[in-house]
Design a binder for these strands. Sequence first.
DNA 1: AATGAATGAGGATTCATTCAT
DNA 2: GATGAATGAATCCTCATTCAT
Lengths: 196, 196, 196, 196
Amino acid sequence: MKQQPRADERRPANDGPKAAARNRAALVAAAREVYAESGLDAPLSAVARRAGVGQGVLYRHFPDRAAVATAVLEENVRQIEQAAAAEGATLADVLGVMTWHLTESAAFIGLMHADGAGSRSGIRAHALALSERVERGLRGHLPDGYRLGGANDLMLAVAMVSGAVTGPTREEREQRALAAWRLLGIEVGPVRPFEG
Amino acid sequence: MKQQPRADERRPANDGPKAAARNRAALVAAAREVYAESGLDAPLSAVARRAGVGQGVLYRHFPDRAAVATAVLEENVRQIEQAAAAEGATLADVLGVMTWHLTESAAFIGLMHADGAGSRSGIRAHALALSERVERGLRGHLPDGYRLGGANDLMLAVAMVSGAVTGPTREEREQRALAAWRLLGIEVGPVRPFEG
Amino acid sequence: MKQQPRADERRPANDGPKAAARNRAALVAAAREVYAESGLDAPLSAVARRAGVGQGVLYRHFPDRAAVATAVLEENVRQIEQAAAAEGATLADVLGVMTWHLTESAAFIGLMHADGAGSRSGIRAHALALSERVERGLRGHLPDGYRLGGANDLMLAVAMVSGAVTGPTREEREQRALAAWRLLGIEVGPVRPFEG
Amino acid sequence: MKQQPRADERRPANDGPKAAARNRAALVAAAREVYAESGLDAPLSAVARRAGVGQGVLYRHFPDRAAVATAVLEENVRQIEQAAAAEGATLADVLGVMTWHLTESAAFIGLMHADGAGSRSGIRAHALALSERVERGLRGHLPDGYRLGGANDLMLAVAMVSGAVTGPTREEREQRALAAWRLLGIEVGPVRPFEG
DNA sequence: AATGAATGAGGATTCATTCAT
DNA sequence: GATGAATGAATCCTCATTCAT
């Protein structure tokens, strides 16, 4: 016999299925915070704890560590896609939104230069798919005749900027990002999240 | 009663002080390889094993995992300093050496944008000192009137380039690094290690 | 940073490498006991605890759960091989030793009818090899003209007897085993461990 | 304020009491399959999933994992009782039915030598009661003057045969069972389920 | 000065069981 | 009556670090 939860002892609340969606959102939010503080390799238990749920809930919603990370990034990427799809958006606007996410989310920075060896987070596969979505979003906005010197140079520039984004405070990261774009001679719109 | 060393009693080799230096070097070399293959989070036991020494030796030479990483980087940094100090070296030459290390060593890439959050390797503190040494090495070679737009922009550029350096093969990493320098309009000399 | 054993806190004794062999033996003995009480699926932590060592020691000596079980069975099997190899041993003698192990070791019973599905212990592969060694040991002792009705019937009989061996006490198990052999019309020597 | 059931609001089907019996049967059938594939230690969630019901339903019908296993075995046992009670049934016939269940159901094999130690499934108690029912069923068919050498030898023989029943395929298991009966000199009727 | 065993905390993952809906 | 989410204990396994020899 393996598990014998004491039946008589006080169980914490179980808000029932209604909580499911709320919990999932809480987990993603918690993961974002934890990642910002401790990096993509942070223990999943920390994420669950911060979300205020048991570990099992995390595993119910996400099969593995990569799925958690992907869920966090998914939100970043979607905003960029939306910014790219918005009426009258310019490349600068989209880059602004992207820069905002870069300054906001350590995980997103990681995504944008998607290491190689090492990170045990095993997102590589998903990362590729996600960064392609970003690329598609950006590519549509290269103005006529706009050259960055080659087909892949836009993403190279993105990687470079994300390499530049270091620093403990959001402000510092934003400044560095902007300086980096300046160095590349690329104009960036207002740095902010996409709001419909 | 002290025990007489007997030849037939299998005791691990103890080559005396001479071995100490050799071991240290072996550990650093092993660490470099292991880091390249498995990232900075690789188990120290793997480093010791690859170096062909016991774990204790590792701890004799390095107080903790940060010290190991630092020692690896130390070698990279020293080469850059030497390149910078060499007779007649130009900025491009130094950057070439640096780029070589960037393409060679995953750990060094990490150093150059020294995340802040995340890496459990706890090098933060050391990293700062090391990257300042790199900076000093480079700064001395800014030709008269050479402006990168501001005091810190050189290191920003370095961070940007290291952000660009991704890819599974050395060749790919070198190409990306060179493309990144090109995008920044900065000339780079031959990409190679410093050789006195 | 993942692990931070409190350096200042009292560490339990570390008897050094000398303890290694002792520990391994303790682990095998503990495993045998634990298996007898709780079956082959018992938690490895229970084995380590009973052996009085940390979990890590267990994993140092045995790569996985199957290795532990194999080590336990190995001893049983070796005794049977020795009994079979002994001067002047008859089939009955060897079966006596085997029966002793059958009554003694729950794990060994399991080996002899090597389930199929289910047991998470994952010994299947090793079990096969081990039970073949038993078979070889026995086969050499089939007296001339002795027929059990077919090539595999000896092992079938063994499996049948081990199926019969149930019961909480050693005595009861021995009685059932002997009754089973009787039912099969096979003579068995004294039930006891092999002693050189 | 009570909520009116509305057709469009997705609520899980609730087919009323009629479904209860159907669900119970589905659970037992599912458990039998799952046990066959993954052993008695298979997660209950797998059983519920395979039965196409929620976990709660499983717990409504069975207080714990032992109850599930017992229910599965109950069906096996009942068939044997029925075979024993049938008009004109001989011992061989009943043994045939029993052998069929032995080859069919891993769980039933386990029942018949009811380990004692080990199985975390905690059926021990129930198992005893069930195997007594089997015994009663068989005992009534011992033909006059039929001796197996002692009061308990019939069940011993059954245990022996079930010990012999191993192998991945049904066919192999049946062959081994028949060979075992032959070795014991006991005649067995056609191996098949009982059909009224 | 080296070896390599031991410790044990920490993180991942899996289920048994409960319970809001 | 059914659903399926939530809880959290238990187990597995991996290392960082210490220490007897």
